[in-house]
Amino acid sequence: MYEISKELKEKVVQLNSTLLEKYKDFFNMDEYELRDFIDENIGKIIKIEKLSKDELNKCYKNGGIVGVDGSRNRVGGAYPHYVEIYQGLAKSTIYEESPIFKADYYTPLYLEGERDLLKKFEEEENKEEAIRDYKLSSIEVEVALEAVKEFNPYAIMMDGSLIRYDIECFDKWIELRQECERRNIVLIGVIKDIKTSIIGQNLIEEKQLDVKEFLYDREILYGLLKYGEIIKIEDKVAKKSKEGFTSIFMRSSEAPNIIGMDILDNQREYLDEMARLVLSLTPSSSRGVPLWLDIVDSQVKISDKMVEGLLGNYLDRQVFEKFFISERDKRTL
């Protein structure tokens, strides 16, 4: 049993008091007034229903849904003695037995193999981080593109915001986007962990909230939307609209947290349908993520034991021990 020190308890109590005081205006906001503000300044709050059986059958007959996710894990110690492994997976609801995997790795010990990417990101302040992000985003886009060509699905459901691919691997992303547009395949991103501050920024600008830092949309909307409600974010307040995306917030389960969804701006006619699809694929008792994406996530995930087993079995023992086993990993207590 771990023992918590008296000082640590006091620090946590102090943190609680500090946050309650700092954000007291937010905690005291009237729920109905906040909903009205969002409806007038951010986007309309709309109640949606799940797709009917006929509508779900239409999705199936037109190619089904492909879920796409990626995973990364790292083993080793401090720079440069580590290796990061990446894996991407695209999985069709129709062709379940034909998953598409792609993988890659990065280690500072072998930068000779990264010359093209080092040149590509030479202007970046943190070239290493840019390369690592590019590798993960790229394999996700690559498996999605292969799934488009192999399965010709009705829709592609990416795990995360679409703008991430636009930023991190634009060259490959634009190929996927154009291919989906050409084939009329609906492309969406489902965002589990929202990091935007659209509502908080507007609350401050409109003098509705007196805080120095923006509140994030995830805490403002926590418990505010009802199950099945969405917010269609107006282009005038959505930063993503400049990059060619339309977005919504939605409560897709009984859990009080909300998720986000992106869609290509020239596919916005499918926005309501895709929101209803996400709602249909999400168990009401879950944390709000479509079940198919959870399945893909579980199958693509690279665990610590998997990486250690992989490197332990396929790297020469002296290579593994000399380069990738940190002193911390050698501890016995």
Rank of each mutant, 00 (worst) to 15 (best):
M157L: 14
G160A: 06
C169I: 06
S161D: 03
W173V: 06
E150S: 09
V143H: 02
S161F: 00
D166S: 14
N184V: 09
D166A: 13
V143M: 05
Y154F: 14
V143E: 03
A155P: 08
L176A: 05
A155N: 03
A147N: 02
K172N: 11
C180V: 12
E150W: 00
F151S: 03
F151V: 01
N152Y: 11
N184W: 03
M158G: 05
G160Q: 07
E168F: 11
E150F: 02
I156H: 00
R164C: 11
Y154H: 11
D159N: 13
D166I: 15
V143G: 02
I156N: 00
C169H: 02
R177I: 11
I167R: 06
A155T: 15
N152D: 13
D159P: 11
K172P: 04
S161N: 06
Y165E: 05
Q178H: 13
I167G: 00
V148L: 15
W173Y: 15
A155K: 01
W173A: 05
A147T: 08
N152Q: 12
R182T: 14
P153I: 10
R183D: 12
I174F: 04
E146D: 06
I167E: 10
L162P: 04
I163T: 09
L162W: 00
W173R: 04
R177E: 13
S161G: 13
Y154L: 10
R182F: 14
D171C: 08
I163P: 07
L176E: 09
G160K: 11
L145D: 07
E179A: 09
D166M: 14
R164I: 15
D166K: 15
K149M: 08
F170M: 09
Y165T: 06
F170K: 11
Y165W: 05
A144K: 01
W173C: 04
S161H: 04
E168V: 06
E181L: 15
